[in-house]
């Protein structure tokens, strides 16, 4: 009994070294029984056509390398099951970022926004000998925030980020901003809020929720953004 099956793909291809313009490639591949995820299928496909380029590393949804647009929705190839996926499987690069090659995008702008929120703990008191104490309840406040893998699925599905990638921090960056605002050990609350008090950086979010819909780690940037907005309001009164 053979459980081999053939699957059809439609893949965005572009190699600036040889292609005048991007095109969609129709290609199929025969899968082995052990090929359970889309990433397995892509690896199988690459054995057939070694010029197909994509990023990948951990193959378990924790490194954030293999985000792409899968049948119209951003996601991680390594967490996308081959069982319930419609064919032909249409793969495109994450929308809104410059394409380097095939489904590999230039993420400079995305990381620039992440860096702009000062993504590190700020506490200028002399470090104590032992750990700073934090109650389990206070630590729980960081759940749903610190787990972000910087895959960019969210920001590249956000219309506000498409239009203003240089000005709007985007859901991933704002989630990170709230991660530090919510940390009882961080002392830079007002500095962080000042940094976001701007018509674009925070307030371009119109709660469209695309970001929540696509996050492969089930995080909720919209909620975090709402909490930052609440903090802004509270400090204004």
């Amino acid at each position: 009994m053979s459980s081999k099956r053939t699957v059809q793909f439609k893949i965005y291809r572009y190699d600036p070294d040889k292609d005048a313009a991007p095109y969609m490639q129709d290609i199929s591949v025969e899968l082995e029984e052990s090929d359970k995820k889309l990433l397995d299928a892509l690896v199988r496909l690459k054995a057939k056509d070694d010029s197909l380029s994509f990023r990948r590393s951990c193959r378990e949804g924790v490194c954030g390398s293999d985000a792409m647009n899968i049948n119209g929705k951003n996601g991680l190839a390594c967490l996308t099951s081959m069982d319930d996926i419609a064919q032909p499987i249409t793969l495109r690069p994450l929308p809104g970022l410059p394409v380097i090659r095939d489904v590999i995008v230039d993420m400079t702008q995305f990381f620039k926004q992440y860096h702009s929120i000062k993504p590190y703990l700020i506490n200028n008191e002399p470090a104590p000998e032992r750990e700073r104490l934090q109650s389990p309840e206070d630590r729980d406040e960081l759940n749903g925030l610190y787990e972000c893998i910087l895959c960019a699925c969210c920001s590249t599905s956000c219309p506000s980020f498409w239009w203003n990638p240089d000005k709007f921090v985007g859901p991933a960056g704002l989630l990170a901003a709230y991660r530090f605002l919510a940390d009882t050990r961080d002392q830079a609350t007002s500095e962080r809020l000042d940094n976001l008090e701007d018509p674009y950086r925070l307030f371009r979010c119109h709660s469209i929720m695309n970001c929540v819909d696509v996050c492969p780690k089930h995080l909720n940037p919209t909620k975090a953004i709402g909490k930052i907005k609440d903090m802004m309001v509270r400090r204004a009164v």
Binding site: Y120, L121, N123, A127, E131, R132, L133, Q134, S135, P136, D138, R139, L142, Y146, F180, D183, R185, D186
Partner: peptide, 9 residues
Amino acid sequence: EHYGMPFDR
């Protein structure tokens, strides 16, 4: 921990 690592408590 001082760098901000979110250890469980």
